[in-house]
Design a protein around this nucleic acid. Structure first.
Lengths: 394, 394
DNA sequence: CCACTTTGTATATTGGTTAAACAAAGTATT
DNA sequence: AATACTTTGTTTAACCAATATACAAAGTGG
C-alpha cells in the first residue's frame, strides 16, 4: 500500500539524490545530537554552511526541526540552537506476545508517551485482530495533536515475516499466512511495518539500548524459542526473502533431540524455555518468571538448570560470533532477566570456544531495554520509515 | 599504501558523487553487457542519452571503453557499438596452496591470459615470499603491453586476513602475522588485495561462476578445513574486523571431538579432510584425490566415508541457510570434486532439516570454476579495485 | 522519393552545492 | 568605551552535472 524503501529505487545519480542524501544527513545529525547550531551541523557533516542553512530552513518549514533561541557563545556571536521536533508526529509500537498485547505511543525521538497492555484470552485470529485494532484506535485517539499526526504503526510478532509484511508462521499462536501489515494499513490508512520480534528488538537496542554507534551487531532473543536480529553495516539484515536470523534452529547436536521443525539438535531445544519440560533437573516451576524467583531463593535445581542453559547459550553464541564477526552480541528476550544465573556459564563457554581473533573488541551484554525493547524497536522502525519518506522538494 | 574504498569516504552528496555513481554505472553496464550502443546504455541505466554520451566520451578517452564500429540497424540509424576494453590493463591473481603456488595473469574482464604453477618445497616465509615475488615479476614482465599496465595483484590465502591486509594466522602454513599486502605493495608499487581463500572463491563465483546476478550467497570452501565467503547485497561481507566466515569452527556437536581451536565439535572435524585420520571406515587413502579415485573404482569404504561427510556437510549448510537465508549456496574447495559421492547425502540432510520457507527459491550447487575459482576471484577483486579508483574528472 | 525510426549530438535550462564576501552579534583587549 | 577579533549565519555569484528539447545523421520501408 505505502511505498517502502523509496531510497534505493533510484539507482542513477542526480541532484535530487544529492539533496536527499544531504537533507537526510542534516536531519539525522540534528535528531541524534541536538541541541545544535547550524554551524556545528556544518562542521559535523562536512557540508557547506550555506547548504546547511538552506536545508535547515526547509526542515523548519516542514516542522521537523525547530529553532529554540540563542545558545551560549564560544567567543563570538551566539548560535541559534536547533532541536529535532520530536513532537512533529507520533508512532505506535506493538508487541504481540503469546498471552498479551503490549502497545506504546511514542514521539519521533522514540520516547514513550503512553503504554497500554491487554491480556489475550486466546489466539483466535479475529479476536486478536479486533483487539489490536481497538488498541491502536484508542492510542490514535488519545495521541497529542501534532503536525503530522500518527505517522506509523510498528509491530513485532513472534514468528516469521516475509518482505511483503505477511506473517508466514507463528508457532506459538498457531497462525499461518496472515497478511497483518496489509490488513492494518487498509484499516487505518497509516503505514505499518511488520517485523519479527528479534529484528524489532535489534533495532530497539541499536537506537536506544546497548548498541548505539555499533554497526555489526547480533541481538539474540531467547524466550519460548530463539531468534536473532542481525544488524550489518548499521542496517537490519533480512536475507534474500526476509527470513534471516532463524538461529533457534541452528543445529548444535548433529544427532540430538528431534525438533518440531523436522531437524534435530536445534539450539532452542537446549537454550530456551523449551528446556523446562525435558530438564534433567527437578525443576520447581516450568516458566521463566517462577524459576527466577526460585533461583533468587537459592533453589539449587533451578540454578543448575539456568547454568546448563547458559552453557548451551554460549555454544550457539560462539557459532554466531565465528560466522558473523560482530562487534556486539546482545542477549534479549524473556530469558535475559535470568542474566545473573546464565551469564557466568555462558561467558565461560564463549571465552573457551570462540576463535581468539574474534574475541578482540567483542562485547557481550544482556538487553538494556528489557521487555520493552521490541515494542520500541518496532515503533522506531516506523519513525525511520516516516523520516525516510519526507518530501525533499518543498 | 594505496587508498582503498575511496567510494565511501565521502558521506555528503555533491556533483562529484553524482558523476561517480553514473560514470561507474555506465562503465559496469558496458563491462557486463557489451557490445552495446549508447542508446541501449541509456535505456538500461535510466540515464539521459546526452549524459551517457558525455560519460562514454570520457571513458573512451580513458581507454576503458572502445567504439568498434556500426552494429545492426533495428529500423533506423545504425548504432555505434561500444566494447569494454578488457585489454586496458592486466591483473595478477595468486592462490597460495599448502604445497603449491598458482598464479594467473588476467585481463580486466577476468579472462585468463596465462597460468603459472610452482611447487613449494616447504613453508619457510622467506622462501615462499621470494618465490612469490619471482612469479609475480615474471608475469608482469611477460604481460602484454597495455595502456595501464599491470594494475593489481590479488592474493587468496588459506588463513585469516584482517582489514589491513595482514595474514593473521594460517594454520597449514604455520604462519602468523605476515604483512603480506604491505610487503608486496612496497616491493612492486602496485595495489595488492589480500583475502582468505573462501572470500576470494565467493567473489570468483559471483562474477564468473554459478552466482551471477545473485545478491545473497554463501560460498563454502571445504578442503583441509572449512571456511565461507559471505556475499550480502552483492558485496563481500567481512564483519566488524574482517574475520567473518570462519564457519569451520561452528559447533555442530556441543560435546564433540576437541578441536585445535580450543572448542569442541567443530564442523570441519566432521566434514573436511580432517576426517581422514579419524574415520571409522578403513580408508584406502588419506587424501581427497586418491579417495576420489578409489570411489570411482567402487571402493565401498571410501564411498561410505564421503556419504558420511556429505551428511555433516548438510548439517552445517542447514545452519547457514537458517541463519543467513541466502539465495544460493556453493560448495567449493578441494572437496567439491567429490560431488558425486557427497551431494546425495548432503542434499537429503538439507531437505530434511532446513526450515520450509528457507528452502523456497534456494539453490545449492557445487563450484563451477573448480580449483581456479579462488585465483580468478582474487584477480577480480583487483580489477574491481582498479575500476573503482578510476578518475572521475578528466 | 518520401515518411518514419533510430541513434547520437548540441544547446539552453534547471537545480543543487560551494566559495567568498558580508552582515550580525558576540568576546577580549587596550 | 573603543577597537580588534571571533563566531554565526546569510547573500551572492559561480560552477557543474543531468536533463529536456531540438536537431542532425543515417538508416528502413513503401
Amino acid at each position: 500500500m505505502f511505498k517502502k524503501d523509496v531510497w534505493f529505487v533510484k539507482v542513477t545519480g542526480d541532484q535530487a539524490l544529492v539533496k536527499k542524501i544531504n537533507k537526510s544527513l542534516v536531519l539525522h545529525t540534528v535528531r541524534k545530537h541536538f541541541p545544535l547550531s547550524r554551524s556545528s551541523v556544518s562542521v559535523m557533516t562536512g557540508l557547506n554552511k550555506a547548504t546547511v542553512s538552506t536545508l535547515v530552513a526547509e526542515l523548519c518549514e516542514q516542522q521537523l526541526v525547530i529553532e529554540v533561541g540563542p545558545g551560549q557563545s564560544s567567543g563570538g556571536r551566539k548560535p541559534l540552537m536547533l532541536h529535532f521536533n520530536n513532537m512533529a508526529g507520533t508512532v505506535i509500537g506493538i508487541e504481540l506476545h503469546v498471552k498479551q498485547l503490549s502497545a506504546v505511543l511514542c514521539d519521533l525521538k522514540g520516547d514513550i508517551i503512553l503504554v497500554r497492555d491487554f491480556t489475550l484470552e486466546h489466539h483466535g485470529l479475529a479476536y486478536v485482530l479486533d483487539t489490536m485494532k481497538e488498541l491502536i484506535a484508542d492510542l490514535i485517539s488519545v495521541a497529542p495533536s501534532t503536525p503530522y499526526g500518527t505517522v506509523g504503526i510498528g509491530i513485532g510478532v513472534p514468528g516469521m515475516v516475509d518482505e511483503q509484511g505477511i506473517l508466514l508462521f507463528a508457532p506459538n499462536l498457531g497462525w499461518e499466512m496472515v497478511e497483518l501489515q496489509q490488513i492494518l494499513e487498509t484499516y487505518f490508512a497509516i503505514p505499518v511495518t511488520l517485523d519479527n520480534e528479534a529484528n524489532a528488538g535489534a533495532v530497539g537496542e541499536l537506537n536506544f539500548g546497548a548498541a548505539q554507534d555499533v554497526s555489526h551487531l547480533l541481538y539474540v532473543s531467547a524466550g519460548s524459542g530463539i531468534g536473532s536480529g542481525i544488524i550489518i553495516d548499521g542496517k537490519l539484515y533480512k536475507g534474500a526473502r526476509g527470513y534471516a536470523g532463524e538461529t533457534g534452529h541452528m543445529c548444535i547436536e548433529a544427532d540430538g533431540k528431534p525438533c518440531s521443525c523436522g531437524s534435530r539438535g536445534c539450539w532452542e531445544l537446549y537454550a530456551s524455555e523449551k528446556t523446562y519440560d525435558t530438564s534433567l533437573f527437578k525443576l520447581p516451576a516450568h516458566n521463566t518468571q517462577d524459576l527466577i524467583r526460585c533461583a533468587k531463593q537459592g533453589d539449587i535445581e533451578a540454578i543448575r538448570h539456568f547454568e546448563q542453559m547458559g552453557k548451551y547459550l554460549g555454544v550457539g553464541v560462539t557459532n554466531l560470533i565465528n560466522s558473523f564477526n560482530p562487534e556486539l552480541i546482545i542477549i534479549g528476550g524473556a530469558l535475559s532477566e535470568a542474566e545473573p544465573w546464565l551469564a557466568t556459564s555462558m561467558n565461560a563457554v564463549v571465552a573457551e570456544r570462540t576463535l581468539p581473533y574474534h574475541k578482540q573488541q567483542l562485547q557481550i551484554t544482556f538487553s538494556k531495554l528489557g521487555s520493552r525493547g521490541t515494542m520500541i524497536g518496532a515503533a522506531f522502525s516506523s519513525v525511520m520509515s516516516f523520516l525516510g519518506s519526507i518530501r525533499i522538494t518543498l
